[in-house]
Design a protein around this nucleic acid. Structure first.
Lengths: 261, 261
DNA sequence: CAAGTATGTTCCATTATTTGGAACTATGAT
DNA sequence: ATCATAGTTCCAAATAATGGAACATACTTG
């Protein structure tokens, strides 16, 4: 259900809190964190002290707020460079976006959720919810469904179990059976769609990226709005999309590192 | 001596280990980590399990190696945007690099070490050690010395104490007294130099960046190679360098966030 | 391919750290 | 000046971390 179960003792809890602070996306006050976290006041306080000491958080004395620290920024940036598909895929998704003049998203999966890893917008495109580093549910996104459909059976079941099936729009697939039916289709065609299932007015066409040993390591999507194109129009992008996904996959298989998970 | 002292219990130790893994810059084996960390085998093992469970590390079963995890990578964008000067300074250092056609580095200080935050190279410049996210000692870099020279006395002593005075080249300042003498000069002129003290053949001219309350929040440097310019030639960049540092400082003072530490 | 060596994992009694309710202090609003 | 809200400290009890040593597994080599 929840992303990282709290069975990892002190360290797990501290990281939970770190995630919460970062999740706010702005400097946060102590009391907000007490409300948001499942831990009692004294415990939260102790963790914040530790994390601040460690440079993972920064405490602004004047404003009494906590924000991500420089050490976290440094570690995270490193991780981005060495542990995600982003640096490797960048040239390809730039080329794709340029070729078709549409927004392209790159995503990977973490703990049953979609993580948006990178994004290229052509010139001045519209803004979507997907910012790099953002999490989204897998059941209602093109990239999420594309990845689930090609997961090995064991992982697939785990990930499906992890879905909340929360409704974001009237089109959201909110039943497990609906999702499974669609996954079957995707597994046949190699293409997944998001028909305004996550954001009203936003549609996408997505394809999985396969790394060494034909393991799904990520997904790629072309995103547009209903203003700009009908859902079926997206189909004309599928050759370019599949080609780019294959290019990235090949690159990832060849390069030992950065590692794709 | 070491960056984050181990006085923060379990969480501190786990983060130490995380830093060590990330520091390798490549997937690492268990035994390498046991050697590198001060903790006993069983303890390292337990931490690695926890961190992997938490998604902060990724364990490649086939290769038996640990690498940064997706969860850590996910934190990158947020942390980088809100915790560093990078987003705010970007336009200014781009303008500077373009104006003078040289490489420009932006750095901040973390636990007595220099963290390179951003870097702009003109067209196809040469490569230096400084990649964004990279750590470097403060005693042998222009940006490091520029920051130390303007730290308040308390912090200054702490940071000087934290230096290892490791020799990287024959020109490296390897004695505390040498460093102090140079800091005095820097404090007078507002300009610091790196005369091949970190990398053979690389020289730079650096200036501190002051935020609200005239606190040093970072430093800026123009980097060139001895191939391209003599050390004294760098002086002709100093007006542009100082101007840009001032612009960034003003911007940082005005904008409440991103926070400069 | 068997014996040897290096590497990785598990166990568990001991030890040290975390935990969190409650009392306390600082801050800020009226 | 008074009250309310936010943040910090305390400390005995509860729990989790510790790490030496035994065990298991993967590699190496004669």
């Amino acid at each position: 259900m929840n992303k990282h179960v709290g069975t990892d003792g002190t360290v797990g809890k501290a990281l939970d809190l770190l995630d919460i602070v970062v999740g706010f996306g702005r400097p946060v006050r102590f009391s907000e964190l007490v409300d948001e976290s499942p831990y009692p006041k004294a415990t939260v306080h102790r963790f914040l002290q530790t994390l601040t000491n460690q440079g993972m958080l920064y405490y602004a004395e004047d404003r009494h707020t906590y924000a991500p620290g420089l050490r976290l920024a440094r570690l995270a940036h490193h991780a981005w460079q060495t542990a995600t598909l982003a640096p490797l895929a960048r040239p390809f998704i730039e080329a794709l976006s340029h070729e078709i003049s549409e927004t392209v998203h790159l995503a990977q999966m973490e703990a049953g959720l979609v993580v948006f890893i990178d994004k290229v917008r052509p010139a001045e495109g519209f803004q979507t919810l997907a910012q790099p580093g953002r999490l989204a549910p897998a059941h209602c996104t093109g990239v999420g469904k594309a990845m689930i459909a090609y997961l090995d059976p064991k992982h697939r079941e785990e990930v499906i179990d992890a879905q909340t099936f929360e409704r974001f729009t009237p089109a959201t697939l909110s039943k497990e059976t609906d999702l499974r039916a669609e996954l079957d289709l995707i597994a046949k065609s190699g293409i997944a769609y998001d028909r305004q299932e996550h954001e009203q007015g936003i549609t996408s066409i997505a394809a999985p990226i396969f790394g060494a040993g034909d393991k799904v390591i990520g997904a790629l999507s072309i995103v547009t709005s209903t203003m700009r194109a009908a859902s079926e129009d997206l189909d004309r992008f599928s050759p370019a999309l599949l080609r780019t996904a294959k290019q990235i996959g090949r690159e990832a298989s060849v390069h030992p590192y950065p590692v794709a998970h």
